[in-house]
């Protein structure tokens, strides 16, 4: 079942996004009406970054992908994955972390906060050469 067919979840996702971020994020769909994503521009200290928050086919068992919708001045290496996706979650994590993705409470609205933190880290790295968030232990 895709999110477009999961009416209950779609209503909850939309409500969470509107409650947290108002009318800023824009919900988009493909022509077939099967793929859904949000488009939004985040802003950190005057710097703007357009992003897409895409729902994978296995959503909400899997978290959304956060895609950077513009070319960055510098490539942040391991912090950006294929398809310009932000690296923000470690799916092989087996420990009980508070911040693990959990479909009972997490929605795409959370990804706007995550993207803002990621962009802030990117700006610090661009200025200092240090990524200010620790990598997960593999």
């Amino acid at each position: 079942m895709t999110l477009a067919n999961d009416k209950r979840r779609l209503v909850l996702e939309n409500a969470a996004m509107r409650e947290r971020w108002g009318d800023g994020p824009q919900l988009c769909q493909d022509a077939a009406g099967t793929k859904l994503w949000w488009e939004h521009t985040i802003s950190v200290e005057g710097n703007r970054l357009p992003i897409k928050i895409e729902y994978p086919s296995s959503y909400p068992s899997s978290p959304p992908d956060i895609v950077i919708a513009t070319a960055l001045p510098r490539n942040p290496g391991q912090h950006m994955l294929g398809g310009n996706r932000m690296c923000w979650i470690y799916p092989n994590e087996t420990r009980r972390n508070k911040n693990k993705w959990n479909p009972s409470r997490d929605t795409a609205a959370m990804c706007v906060s995550v993207a803002t933190q990621w962009f802030l880290a990117y700006l610090v790295w661009d200025a200092t050469g240090d990524w200010p968030v620790p990598d997960a232990v593999n």
Binding site: R96, V133, D135, V137
Partner: peptide, 11 residues
């Protein structure tokens, strides 16, 4: 058993 960081490895 926790680690508070939210980043990263290779998904």
């Amino acid at each position: 058993d926790r680690d508070e960081s939210f980043d990263y490895s290779d998904p």
